[in-house]
Design a binder for these strands. Sequence first.
DNA 1: GCTTGACCTTCCCCTAACTGGAGGCCCCAA
DNA 2: TTGGGGCCTCCAGTTAGGGGAAGGTCAAGC
Lengths: 129, 129
Amino acid sequence: MNIGDVSTRSGLPAKTIRYYEDIGLIKPQRSENGYRCFVEADLHKLAFLGRARALGFTIEDCRMLMALYEDESRASGDVKQLALEHLSKIETKIADLEAMRDTLTELVHCCAGDNRPDCPILKDLSGKV
Amino acid sequence: MNIGDVSTRSGLPAKTIRYYEDIGLIKPQRSENGYRCFVEADLHKLAFLGRARALGFTIEDCRMLMALYEDESRASGDVKQLALEHLSKIETKIADLEAMRDTLTELVHCCAGDNRPDCPILKDLSGKV
DNA sequence: GCTTGACCTTCCCCTAACTGGAGGCCCCAA
DNA sequence: TTGGGGCCTCCAGTTAGGGGAAGGTCAAGC
């Protein structure tokens, strides 16, 4: 398979696939003409990566997950720990965003949003509360 | 005031303050010795920026918010619109993160997390569901 | 056989919002 | 005068790729 086929089948942009090779996540063979030459196993890895990334794992997380995936003697506890750490980061981000959302929502509700210059949002940002 | 004082009083790192000058958000005077020389108005602006950034506004949003703040004839509607757009981006991010969290939570619950290699998390990532 | 267009290659710059560090001035106190 | 801290500029790195240029390759159509 050429990169275009793999891109279509994995749903990942060709650029991303090249990037993943660059950073050593995949190691496709090369044809005589220099084209990358992917086999099913590569496609499978890319799909794995795509799903892990969609769950918000960082590239380095993905690297570890792949290593664990390929290690037949792994302990599922290691995977779970990785996932739990990631989960906790996500929870933190959600909490941060929710705090922003709540503050903003309140400010927005206080703002008339008309043609007059008086604006509680700016007032709050300027510290004159 | 030197940058160290402003940093302390605004809570922003000196690096960040220099960066904000670099991109034109603030324009402190200079002393004879080349040091940045801040007045209260600069400090006020930096505090404004710090609060806007803490609410998740991008630098470009901040630039517009500052312009609106300094425009006595602004319409509060413009500010509100900016805030609403930002709010909607935040809601989207929260929703995305919650989807990840839910999926991850489920996977984590299914994983024994012991010394055995069998792991539903990896199984899911590999597509063998 | 030649051309054309799609596909592939590498290489380099760009993103956001800083952060870290190197190398070098400046200032104040002991 | 020396030392330590503060300040300066400039450069590079961070995430996870995206955009695009310049050029090689391949298969179809004439």
